[in-house]
Amino acid sequence: MRLYADRWPELTAGMVLIDVSDENATTALTAARVPLAVQFAVQTTAARLGAVRLFGDALVPDGAPPLARQAAPVVYGPKSLAATGAEVASSLDSAEQVKASVVHPAAWGDRPTIVIAAAGQPAAAVEAQRRLAELSSRGCLIIADTTDHYVHYAQPDLIVRSVRDIHEPRC
């Protein structure tokens, strides 16, 4: 999303960024690249063999919202897992592209930008998201009322309100 807005600013009226990954926090991902690739290959194969039918929502992490449990056949289906594996594999390349082109003072000018962060994150993670919002003179950070990574499940009204109000952020 951030690269799109940087490359095609005339097509980007504003941005609502939800629980954004920090492009500088790639050390752990670099070390985990091969094990993650193996993990997703195994999970994709297991899904093709019917693991989702056998184990259902037991595959869903504890504390996941009910909608995530209901969507387990889709989320843990072979195509979804393969897509997630490909996304993880490309994350390092994406982070490097973002660092090279998007992260500089006033990168987004006065384009309205709302960054929504889950509550309870380490101070450094919140500060990284605050700096991200500050790449726009009309940027702001909203701390959601949930510690859940699935902010869009926990507070869909916050996401919808932010998208609707992007032209006049109320942070």
Rank of each mutant, 00 (worst) to 15 (best):
A58K: 13
A58S: 11
L59H: 09
D62I: 04
G63N: 12
A64D: 10
A64I: 02
P66D: 11
P66K: 05
P66C: 12
L67H: 05
L67Y: 04
A68Y: 00
R69T: 01
R69A: 05
A71D: 10
A71R: 06
V74H: 05
V74Y: 12
Y76S: 03
G77W: 09
G77M: 14
L81W: 06
L81P: 09
L81K: 13
A82H: 05
G85P: 08
G85C: 04
A86D: 08
E87L: 13
S91F: 11
S91Q: 15
L92S: 12
D93W: 02
V98R: 01
V98F: 08
A100S: 03
V103N: 06
H104N: 04
H104M: 03
P105T: 05
A106D: 15
W108P: 02
G109Y: 02
D110C: 06
D110S: 14
P112E: 02
V115H: 00
V115P: 01
V115R: 00
V115A: 00
A117F: 02
A123E: 13
A125N: 14
V126W: 04
E127H: 12
Q129I: 03
R130C: 04
R130K: 09
R131N: 04
A133F: 07
A133W: 10
A133M: 11
A133T: 07
